[in-house]
Amino acid sequence: MNNQPQPNSAALLSALREAQVNSAVEGTLKMRVHSRLSVSILGLTPALSASIPAASNALVASRTSGISGAKGFAVSKGTLIAWLAPVFALGVLTGVAVDRWHPYSAVKALPHSTAPAAQRDAPLSPQPELPLEAISPSDLEQIDAPGAAASPSLAVSAPAASDANTSLAIERRLLDEARQALARGEPQAGLGPLDRHAKRFPKGVLTEEREALAVRMLAALGQSDAATARAENFHRRFPNSLFTPAVDNAIATISRRNVAGESKL
């Protein structure tokens, strides 16, 4: 085949290669995405955590998988998250609820290299549109279930047993357990898994995430001093963390609650 682009293409390709980024726009965009990630990673439900597809080993999804049976799909979920982002910045809601809306919740985790090619197909499919309050983690499990999938190509196998027992998988399970407790409004129940993680994986891959979650957990429990101390420690240990906005937000929420409490007195 012809190895070079043809003549008319050359100038256009150069324009693409040499396109300059508008740095002010990129800076704003980066800040917004960072801020949203900070909240949404800490708020990932276990269902979503299990649902993120394998990376580049996965075969490309079949074209039908994303949209088949797509009536009523909520395309605007991402938009909704963005719309809610300023609300989160105010600390009015937690990130836990919002991530139940994540568009890719209906995707199963896939084994990386052991599955046949067709099974390694990793579709990213939207979940049906549901009102926020109507979705619970168990609903997401149902959406994840092969039988509930709109397309047969979604019927993929669960992660291989060996994957489930890696240190990373265990770390994730512990943090997911904590997140789930926070999502249920039972932050007390989330402290146990976090402590277990801290003991078993003092230098684990997810240490930074654990510490950020702990601050949120303590803040949700109203343990102001403990939350503040842990937040300060967090900032010292992870001065350039992705989770800084979420940690600061949790502390700001306590402060506001205290101010509101005092003003009622």
């Binding site: 965009l29 995405v33 990630l37 990376a55 991402g78 938009t79 963005a82 568009p103 890719y104």
Partner: peptide, 11 residues
């Protein structure tokens, strides 16, 4: 772009 970039980095 913002929504998709968010999802990419989440993954």
């Amino acid at each position: 772009i913002e929504d998709v970039a968010h999802d990419v980095f989440l993954h």
